[in-house]
């Protein structure tokens, strides 16, 4: 079966620093994958290369078997890649519902209905017409998550979804992520909270200094010597 996402030998360097060094990944449909590694190990850069924000120096990115490296970010998004950002990137001077509406095509009324429906699934229906900039941090995070779902992406990239989120909200988010998987979507998430990664992901990739040093089920990764070394030093 063609993988949903295939990254093959990706390289990206800035100046003299190689942020991503010959990384290869294969993501199958309907699973949750984790991407972990110490700070500065290249996780966000890898995300940026997959989504077209950065252009890789070498290597290939394939979505459902189709090459997408070199395409502008908006095209990749339209091919079914949704993402959230490490620091929230909503449109503060648009209302919550407008944040979702800008993503839509076609019939306006239907789009409005769908946007409100999605906001309701993250329990924000009452704040739909509030300016997004006036919402709390957690609510903004939910708006960003709902906005990402507007296109119903087949592949979802989440950059630290659990950061700065309280317990209740976190559980809601994690349930939403599991629901995505159960609908056959593929999720790749960067996360520092190991409990989240261990409880959620079927497969974990570990990056260190831009290189993929390990890959496997969470339990297996925890015992890997190179991973322990990367996290705790030698």
């Amino acid at each position: 079966m063609t993988p949903v996402l295939e990254v093959d030998g990706l390289v990206k360097s800035f100046g003299g620093v190689t942020a991503v060094d010959r990384v290869s990944l294969r993501l199958e449909a309907g699973a949750i994958y984790g991407l972990i590694g110490p700070n500065g190990s290249g996780k966000t850069t890898l995300f940026n290369c997959i989504t077209g924000v950065e252009r890789a120096d070498a290597g290939r990115v394939l979505l459902d078997g189709r090459r997408v490296d070199g395409l502008p970010p908006w095209r990749i998004a339209r091919l079914g890649v949704g993402r959230t950002f490490q620091t929230i990137r909503i449109f503060p001077e648009l209302t919550a519902v407008e944040n979702l509406l800008v993503v839509t095509e076609g019939d306006w009324e239907a789009a409005c209905a769908r946007a409100r429906e999605l906001l309701a699934t993250v329990k924000l229906e009452r704040l739909a017409d509030e300016y997004a900039g006036n919402l709390s941090y957690g609510q903004q995070k939910l708006v960003e998550f709902a906005r990402m779902l507007m296109r119903d992406p087949g592949l979802v990239l989440l950059d630290e979804p659990a950061a700065g989120v309280n317990r209740t909200l976190l559980n809601d988010l994690l349930d939403a992520v599991r629901a995505l998987r159960d609908r056959g979507r593929t999720v790749l998430l960067v996360e520092h909270d190991m409990k989240v990664v261990m409880g959620l992901c079927e497969t974990v990739f570990v990056l260190d200094h831009g290189e993929k040093i390990a890959e496997g089920p969470p339990g297996f990764i925890q015992g890997d010597e190179r991973v322990i070394e990367a996290y705790f030093g030698r």
Binding site: V53, P73, W74, A77, F85, F91
Partner: peptide, 11 residues
Amino acid sequence: EDEVAAEAMGI
């Protein structure tokens, strides 16, 4: 508001 996010949303 945020051009990078706009692009990432397919605009």
